[in-house]
């Protein structure tokens, strides 16, 4: 369950962003999580629900955008969608790839703060 630690770190970063923007609350949090990030989205939501009550993020809506995995095959110079989990097999030449182009994302994409009074 490293998702709890990851969410704690994310909330600290979000709180700092809120301070930077003069907000005391956050209304919406949009995360961008790649399918090969090694982070379980359900566990992340569980951690979020456990960590946020009574905090600046108590009423915030959590949106998680999933980023599908794409990889590059060095042998036949092809980009391909990787649907088979962590084994990235080139659909053209069947070679295994380690060159992940998208899918490792673990980002805070966007935040929405209530309007200033």
């Amino acid at each position: 369950m490293h998702e709890v630690g990851i969410m704690e770190s994310a909330l600290a970063a979000i709180r700092q962003q809120a301070e930077t923007h003069g907000a005391t609350r956050v209304a919406r949090i949009v995360l961008r999580i790649g399918t090969l990030s090694g982070v379980d989205v359900e566990a992340l939501r569980f951690a979020y629900d456990a960590l946020t009550p009574g905090t600046f993020a108590a009423d915030a809506e959590l949106e998680i955008e999933s980023v599908p995995a794409r990889a590059h095959c060095a042998q036949c110079d092809t980009d391909f969608g990787a649907t088979g989990g962590f084994i990235l097999t080139c659909p053209r030449c069947r070679a295994f790839s380690s060159d992940i182009r998208t899918g490792r994302e673990l980002d805070i994409a966007r935040l929405e703060f209530p309007a200033l009074p």
């Binding site: 923007h21 209304a27 309007a115």
Partner: peptide, 18 residues
């Protein structure tokens, strides 16, 4: 016409501190 919400594109890693 009133500003209801401020949307900020932050694009920072979840594990920024680490």
């Amino acid at each position: 016409g009133e500003v209801a919400v401020r949307s900020v594109d932050v694009n920072i890693p979840l594990l920024e501190k680490n």
